[in-house]
Lab assay of single mutants.
Amino acid sequence: MQIFVKTLTGKTITLEVEPSDTIENVKAKIQDKEGIPPDQQRLIFNGKQLEDGRTLSDYNIQKDSTLHLVLR
């Protein structure tokens, strides 16, 4: 499925993911596309910070959902 990740600069990254993917996996995909190390990434969905060990389906993230990427 496709999800979107919006950065603070207003750029939107499109990712191909599975609901069973962990947040860690998603961060690795963002690193592949953008070169941002996962330990600098914080992903936010519906105002909640997403934890590495959880999956997209844990957070009820579905296709065409938009996550927000904050760098630390």
Rank of each mutant, 00 (worst) to 15 (best):
D32L: 04
L56F: 15
Q40V: 05
M1K: 04
P19A: 06
F4L: 04
Q40F: 02
N60P: 14
L43D: 00
T55G: 02
T14K: 04
K33I: 11
I44M: 13
P19N: 08
R72E: 08
Q40I: 08
G53F: 05
I23V: 06
Q41P: 08
I30H: 00
T9S: 03
K48I: 04
Q49E: 11
I23G: 05
Q2T: 15
R42E: 15
T9E: 12
K11E: 05
H68S: 05
Q41A: 08
L8R: 06
D39H: 05
K63M: 12
T7G: 09
R72Q: 08
L15M: 13
L50I: 10
D58V: 04
D32E: 13
H68G: 04
M1W: 06
H68A: 07
I61H: 00
T12S: 04
E18N: 04
L8A: 02
K11T: 11
K29I: 03
I30R: 00
F4Y: 03
L15N: 00
F45G: 07
I30Y: 06
P37D: 09
G10A: 07
E16K: 11
S20E: 05
D64G: 03
R54F: 11
P38Q: 11
F4P: 03
D39K: 12
Q41T: 10
P38E: 14
L56N: 01
A28D: 04
L71W: 03
V26W: 01
P38H: 14
E24A: 04
Q31A: 06
V70W: 06
F45W: 05
Y59T: 04
I3R: 00
T9A: 02
N46V: 06
K27W: 10
I36L: 06
I61D: 00
S20F: 08
Q31I: 02
H68Q: 01
N25H: 14
S57A: 09
F4E: 09
P38G: 13
D32P: 12
S65L: 06
E51Q: 03
Q62Y: 10
Q41E: 13
T14R: 07
V5R: 00
K29T: 05
E51Y: 02
V26E: 00
T7L: 11
I3Q: 00
Q40D: 14
K63A: 12
S57N: 07
D21I: 12
T55D: 11
Q62G: 07
N46P: 01
N46T: 05
K29L: 07
V70Y: 14
D21E: 11
F4K: 04
T66V: 04
E34R: 01
E18R: 07
I61Q: 00
E51L: 07
P37I: 12
K33T: 07
I13D: 08
I36N: 08
I23R: 01
T12V: 05
K33Y: 10
G47H: 07
E18F: 09
R42T: 09
I30A: 10
K63H: 13
P38A: 12
K33Q: 04
D32K: 09
K6W: 15
A28N: 10
I23Q: 05
G35S: 09
E51I: 02
L69Y: 04
K48L: 15
K48R: 08
D52R: 03
P19D: 08
T9D: 15
E51F: 02
I13A: 13
